[in-house]
Design a protein around this nucleic acid. Structure first.
Length: 595
RNA sequence: GCCCUUGUAGUUCAAUGGAUAGAACGAAGCUCUUCUAAGGCUUUGAUGUAGGUUCGAUUCCUACCAAGGGCACCA
């Protein structure tokens, strides 16, 4: 972070002294480590800005009112001119500056800089933090499973992404409040209850998750009946109304039981996933609050539609939006109305600087409509809303069931992934307790990583056979690298080799440099992830450093009493383990010491 | 029909308008009496089509083709 700013300022001042104006300086890491540690394309940009008006025979001719001039020379020549100036006041950390390619300016940092950066990592347990969001209070709403329905794969995605984003922006200094919004009223509840009434409650000896599974099955059956049986449909509609107004004692009993059981089952899943929430919001509570808001603005923002429904003509305000129903002709609030109530409530509970909602992109379009309505009701709150959408999990093969023939839910996926790890480590020298813990940590990591390794907007093509990857570009690969490093550190303790920085005039070999050249970048990666709400930058970065470290590990002996470099190699290993641990934490993945 | 999103190796994903488009899986070969082989090292192979803007386009714009989502009483 510090180095980046330093070089940027250096360039800025140099350009000023050359009378070149630059709006912003793009400083990047070249793709290839051989091309330096930082690179800028400023010569290309400045070349254009430098151009002065002449006739049309110049390269490129007229573009956007700017006319190219040959007297500005080539970008390469300009780059050389800039470098010449830069070289006059070179900071200690910069080894050399070169012009490369068509006019890139590449900065090479000194060995001392890298060694110091390793020191810095070891001195700061929270290495990677930044101040982007210091002092901001941000609520992040994610997961949002519905009572009476299974915890499906979409909830797993939302939870994984939401937890990671929460941790990342927390690392940027924000105070995070985690929220979970759950649909405890609505037709899906009535469908499940309809079947439960027909089939009866499950045996009391059943566990929470077994009972939840039973309720999920009832929902599926009831849903089917609703679509294909008109009598059932009438009955379910009636139950739905009764659930809203709580007018039927026996239905209330089933409802209260079912809601508690499914919520308890969710908590068990959150425990495995490593999440917990500060707030649980329910649609049943938000409905009247939203309804009041809609009523207050009826005739102003909302209009009467067909058959007495209350609707919002969003397309009147923005041609890209469409009309949506807020109160049905039956007088029941829709999801849109509940969302209004929810948002209002969030800002009443906490003085938020930002309210983030994470959902699948199927909700993107209608969320825009809700936002528009909110903007007209309360512009201040609306301006603080941020809707982050993620892709959907799609099946590659069309198969809806797992190996065992069960319907794949988020929960079953977690269990099967963990079971596979358990199978893999069954012959290892661990206690049963350790095996259980490791299989959970690694199994969850495989799933989480496969969700977080790509940018969150895209769909995930899900193939049961391939999705849980344990090798290559995977969560377990990262954990494995960490565990190996940890094993080295254990050995270093036994051999009494302490981390050290006594390099003298000895140069570290080229392999060392690869890992050094990546570690100090961690804060920059976190910063970008935080700014863009994109965890995959961190995921990709961790694979890079893991690869660099594994390469180093495979080709070098680290613990060696006869090697004067050994203490430094141990320091490097320790620094790697720190960064990896922090990085995995930001992805919501545990870092087992052994596996 | 209209509106969003997405098209990159055989497959799954990367690449803030820059340099030789990176990985992983798959396939072929090599590598454990050095610290965890869930590892390491080789080899193989890609920007949907047609234009445009730009010194430079996977990236921006337009059209087309293809996939996913959304378009009034579900969430």
């Amino acid at each position: 972070m510090y180095m980046q700013e330093k070089i940027e300022n250096l360039i800025k001042n140099t350009l000023k002294s050359l009378n070149i104006e630059a709006k912003s300086i793009l400083l990047e890491h070249p793709a290839d480590l051989k091309m330096g540690d930082y690179s800028t394309n400023i010569a290309f940009i400045s070349y254009r800005a430098l151009a002065v008006a002449t006739d049309s025979h110049v390269p490129g001719g007229k573009h956007n009112g700017i006319i190219w001039a040959q007297k500005a020379g080539s970008p390469y020549e300009l780059a050389e001119k800039i470098v010449k100036k830069l070289n006059k006041k070179l900071p200690l950390e910069i080894l050399k500056i070169e012009v490369a390619g068509a006019g890139f300016i590449n900065f090479y940092l000194t060995q001392d800089f890298f060694v110091n950066s390793i020191k810095e990592i070891l001195e700061n347990k929270n290495f990677g933090q930044n101040n982007l969001l210091t002092g901001k209070k941000i609520m992040v709403e994610y997961t949002d499973p519905n009572p009476f329905k299974p915890f499906h794969i979409g909830h797993l995605m939302s939870n994984t992404i939401g937890e990671s984003i929460s941790r990342i922006i927390e690392f940027s200094g924000a105070k995070i409040i985690r929220a979970n919004y759950q649909g405890d009223v609505g037709p899906h509840v009535a469908k499940a209850i309809y079947e439960i009434i027909k089939k009866g409650l499950p045996d009391k000896s059943k566990s929470v998750s077994e009972s939840a599974l039973y309720i999920g099955e009832c929902y599926a059956k009831g849903s089917d009946e609703y679509d294909n049986n008109t009598d059932a449909k009438k009955e379910i509609d009636l139950i739905n109304k009764k659930v809203y107004d709580r007018s039927d004692k026996s239905i209330n009993d089933i409802y209260d039981w079912g809601k508690r059981v499914t919520l308890d089952a969710f908590e068990e899943i959150y425990k495995i996933l490593g999440t917990s929430f500060n707030y649980y919001f329910f649609e049943s509570v938000m409905a009247p609050i939203g309804q009041k808001l809609v009523n207050e603005n009826s005739g102003k923002i909302f209009e009467k539609g067909d058959e007495g429904a209350v609707i919002f003509h969003a397309e009147k305000h923005d041609s890209k939006l469409h009309t949506r129903v807020f109160i049905t002709s039956q007088g029941l609030p829709t999801y849109e109305t509940k969302e209004l109530g929810l948002t209002k409530t969030k800002f009443e509970k906490e003085s938020l600087d930002m309210s983030v909602v994470i959902t699948a992109h199927e909700q993107e379009e209608y969320m825009k409509v809700v936002s528009k309505a909110l903007e007209m009701i309360n512009p201040e709150i609306a301006s603080k809303m941020k809707h982050i959408v993620h892709g959907m999990m799609r099946l590659a093969t069309g198969k809806m069931s797992s190996r065992k023939g069960n319907v794949i839910t988020g929960e079953s996926l977690i269990l099967e992934s963990c079971a596979e790890i358990l199978e893999k480590i069954k012959d290892r020298n661990f206690t049963d307790e350790e095996k259980t813990q490791i299989s959970k940590d690694v199994g969850v990591s495989a799933l989480k990583y496969s969700i977080l390794k790509q940018n969150i907007g895209g769909n995930i093509i899900y193939d049961f056979e391939k999705s849980i990857s344990f090798e290559g570009d995977s969560g377990p690969y990262l954990q494995y690298s960490y565990a190996r490093a940890n094993s080295i550190l254990e050995k270093a303790k036994v051999e009494n080799i302490l981390p050290g920085f006594l390099l003298n005039d000895k140069k570290s070999d080229s392999l060392t440099k690869d890992i050094e050249k990546l570690l100090y970048r961690f804060p920059e990666v976190v910063f970008r992830s935080s700014k863009e709400f994109e965890p995959h930058y961190i995921a990709n970065y961790l694979v890079d450093i893991a690869r660099a470290y594994n390469n180093y590990y495979g080709n070098t002996k680290i613990i060696d009493k006869d090697d004067a470099m050994s203490p430094y190699k141990v320091a490097l290993t320790l620094a790697f383990s720190f960064v990896m641990k922090n990085g995995l934490y930001l992805l919501g993945i545990k870092a087992p010491e052994r596996m």
